[in-house]
Amino acid sequence: MAAAALLASGPTAPAAAVDTEPDRFELHRTALAHEQLGETARAIDDFATACAKGLAPSCTMAGLAKLDRATGTGSLMDAAQDLAAGCLAGSDFACMKMGRALGAVSARSKGTEGFVAIALLQMGEECRAAANGTACYDAAALLRAEERGGADMRAVQRYAAAACAREAYPGCLPVAAPAADEEMTLERASAHCLSARADGCINLLEILLKDAEGSSASGALTALQHACDAQIGIACANLGLFYSNGPAGARDEGAARRYMRAGCDGSVAQACFAFAVMHKKGVGGPVNQPRALALVDHACDLGWAKACETLATIVENGEAPFRADHNPDVLRRRACRLGSDEACSAGVPAPIPPTSKARQFVP
């Protein structure tokens, strides 16, 4: 279902055209360039196209840009739906921004929404109260329900019942709230992870880190491996974390490096940054400084604020070329936009307007 429809009381392209279309990473990089030049509408178009091709960081960036321009309920819901894809893929920043978008929708609510919308807005309120908690992922899954095979009606009923117990909205239904969910079990965590919900993969990692020899550990490891085999990037990244930072007996630098690469290949920005550190320090393989730098750059492009700040410092120290898209001020502005309080408080100068005659750095 479309996101806006939750609040409501063409032909296929020829196969020959596919080969000439830019890939999703090329679209994402082009969108970043448009955004840097202040061409927001063009940036949104390219981010949205890359998002539709399955690149979750592009969904986050599209949602962020749309949220900046949102003026009403429909545009806020559109932004929230894009941010939901980034949230499900493992971006805490996307989860937080999605919660804020839903909070803005809730503030505009007239109390006449239907039962599912009441549940969604309750999820949004709980997400804002506990950033990156289960409510954030429940909201994200509901916003992306159409592509995920439908809504979890048990979750809808639970959140709607909570909202209706607080206030009798016209859209409330006379249904009893289901029993409260218990702590995330191995079975639920596995199901969520395998359905590309980052919270499930995160819970599986927590099970492993808490007790690698426990009765649930083998099942958690198997579930993460199956999810990684299914190209769920956050599952691969979490396996990389387990083999690099887990119990001493489980550590395997070679496996950590392989899984972190798989996580980076799955467009998990944090995994790309960790993979860069492995190349810099020679963890699980040879030292490769040029590759490390390229991976930090890629992690920044994929939306990891720390990578953008790190790249700014690298450039300032003369360890990377000083060019337009590697300008430390540009990088720190991007880090600020991606949620870095440190970058925001650094007093980075405002962007140079595209029409300025100011000196241009050579690429």
Rank of each mutant, 00 (worst) to 15 (best):
A50Q: 00
T60M: 13
H279M: 04
E125M: 07
A50P: 04
A13M: 10
M1P: 12
T49P: 08
A180Q: 11
T310E: 06
T30N: 14
A163Y: 05
V283P: 06
G38S: 10
D46H: 04
F25I: 14
T49Y: 12
Q36K: 13
L27T: 03
F275C: 10
A350M: 07
T20M: 15
C228I: 00
V362A: 14
C272H: 01
K110N: 15
S215M: 11
P290M: 11
R251C: 03
M123Q: 01
K280S: 14
R24V: 05
E21I: 08
A16G: 13
Y159Q: 06
E146L: 10
A168N: 07
L27N: 01
L221V: 08
C336F: 01
K280R: 14
A135M: 00
R108E: 10
E213A: 13
G240N: 04
G249W: 05
R144M: 06
C201F: 08
A119T: 01
A17R: 13
N327K: 02
G282D: 12
D301W: 05
I202E: 15
C228H: 02
S340H: 03
T73A: 11
Q270M: 15
E187V: 15
C59Q: 06
A145G: 02
E146M: 07
R148E: 03
D138M: 06
R251L: 09
G263Q: 02
A256N: 00
G124K: 05
H298E: 10
E183A: 13
R337A: 09
N317C: 04
E35N: 08
A217R: 00
G266K: 07
